[in-house]
Design a protein around this nucleic acid. Structure first.
Lengths: 205, 205, 205, 205
DNA sequence: GATGAATGAGGTTTCATTCAT
DNA sequence: AATGAATGAAACCTCATTCAT
């Protein structure tokens, strides 16, 4: 967690630091990202950096938090609050939609999350032994869907959740690497849902 | 590519080096992996390392090659050679099966591949601008399936291939982190296929 | 060019670094001179060195610059500014005189210049393909002398300039290795001039 | 001094080694010249190198010896043997001539000599505290000339010898860097002699 | 609180030389 | 005698972090 000093900073400066950090971590894996580069780009002194943050990891942790927060903010509030009124696939659609919107608006945040996901050592240092939050989210969604009777009860929610997570990573990756996808053209999302829906929906026979 | 020296080494020593390298790269991302640690664990002098390899990246590249090779070796020869006799989902099943077998036999190799996948900078240095080979493989499989009439022609092979790749990463990850999956219990694979098959198979109506 | 940091240093420290560098480069050719030794002798940490200079070559370049500057400072300003009032041999005498004074005051700087002159690879890295400045200087002096009518027009200025340069190296070398020459005893200079003057002056018949 | 083994080598091989060494030392200053490169280019094993020579310096010393020898071989035998029949300037002319011929025939040997001359540390390790042989040679020639009455007795032979040596370095340098000089066109030598002769010849008044 | 220099551990790489076959 | 791998001591350089003002 950043030190108090950081939060006492004028917003404008705070944002410069965050942005610089994002740029650096988006471009390089954690251990190659340089604190110096961040300070430089943010226009603050090296010493200041350590007045704001415990160390490099501290900043990184905070960044991850921010990213999560931002990601959540993309989810339709109404849906979150009235979760029960919606069917599983509608919820899933919404989840994907928000994911895509997020990725399109914040292309540089995506690789940071990816990189954390792939550096288990770092991940553990940050999250301890907690399960992946995304997987967890999908698992609960699936369980909910099974209860509702929209998802095939035959499937193992934990496992399928993991699959959905993997697809999500690929999806966002696809979005940001492939400039042409845009919100108007919802083909991608529809294909995704078509796939998943056919894949796990409850069939009546 | 390692230098000749390396290939002239007694097999036993060569293996010690490779193993040490695998251990190091499995435990740490590329830039945190230490050449010194590898040399030490392999029981060779620092200088020797550089008699075998151009540099750290050279070893890493070679490792990736070995991993790919090994992975391929898990694929049922018969299937590869008589690809046309099998339906898409049979082929897919085989692909997943081999992937699982590989992951179970070589749990430490998996994270190395993951890590490469997530460090784009490194990836490009190694593969240039080539597309991900795994995605490519799935894409061709899908196109083949569409031609055969077993895969729904509505889908975009490039996109779905990407999804399948993401699922594969998650699948292998699932396997190695979750000790309990074993080959006898093929539940995981079956679920996976159930999901995918329902998801994209050609329907007659 | 050293970094800003270096120029912000307290003079006393800056000088310690420069002196240490001079000692090291005077004692060893470029590739044998050790950054560590310089840092040690200057009483700074290794890391600091790289906060001041890009790398070893950067420091060396700067050193050469300093040496050139210092050498120039030995030249009688009056003469430089009123060049036309003096005859060629007077100018030459002045050039030699200043060279000697410089060499006597800074015996350790001389070998550094020499060493650069003899390492063509290094020289090119530092100066590019430029011609030797010293030779150039002599050439212009000679051309001037020919125009003035004091230098024999028969000679090839480019070639003789090269010879004068060689003599200059030897001269300075002679001075520093042979402790006994001193300014009071101007015999050396006089011999030199006697030689050169007789050698190339314009004769009337 | 190379070991016996070296001299027992088939001439052809011996020459390959020498040539490789020349190439390497001509291209790089002593401490940057690599034994490995020499062995490689000569087509011998690293181990063999150390069967032939004590170490890098041993080879280098030997090389210098060879170069000296070769240089001497360019001097007109007749002149050496009947030194007394020739006047000083004739001898000097001959010395320069042979120097030029040598430089033109062996352009790669010249920089090796230069480099030695400029690395005092190395020089001392090789020659001990002995005076420069070239300077010595010129000094004796000058003394001889004074006795003969052809050289102005006013000059200090030791000093002028040093100057002549410096000019010689520059001369050879001029020759090898400037492709166009050739033996037919003896202009260079003539200028040189014109310069020196006028410079120090005994005048009758 | 801000600054930016200072620190030094640590990492990669090079290469002369030795060793074992 | 020939080979070529083995060795390990340096060397250079980087960078997170601390310090002093």
């Amino acid at each position: 967690m950043p030190k108090e000093t950081f939060f006492n900073l004028p917003v404008e400066k705070r944002e410069r630091v965050i942005e610089a950090a994002i740029d650096e971590f988006a471009a390089h894996p954690f251990h190659k990202a340089r604190v110096t580069a961040i300070a430089e780009q943010a226009g603050i002194a090296m010493g200041s950096f350590y007045q704001y943050f415990e160390d490099k990891k501290d900043l990184f942790k905070y960044l991850i938090e921010l990213i999560m927060e931002k990601k959540l903010s993309y989810i339709n509030r109404d849906i979150v609050e009235n979760r029960d009124k919606y069917g599983f696939f509608q919820l899933l659609r919404e989840a994907y939609l928000s994911g895509i919107r997020f990725a399109k608006d914040n292309p540089s945040l995506v690789p940071i999350g990816m990189m954390l996901a792939s550096d288990k050592e770092l991940y553990r240092e940050i999250y301890g032994e907690h399960e992946d939050k995304g997987v967890d989210f999908f698992r609960r969604l699936l369980e909910h869907g099974i209860e509702q009777g929209t998802v095939d009860p035959v499937i193992d929610p934990a496992f399928i959740a993991k699959m959905l997570m993997g697809m999500t990573y690929s999806l966002t990756d696809f979005i940001i690497e492939d400039g042409k996808v845009d919100l108007e053209d919802m083909g991608v999302i529809d294909q995704m849902l078509y796939f998943v829906e056919n894949g796990i929906k409850k069939r009546d026979n």
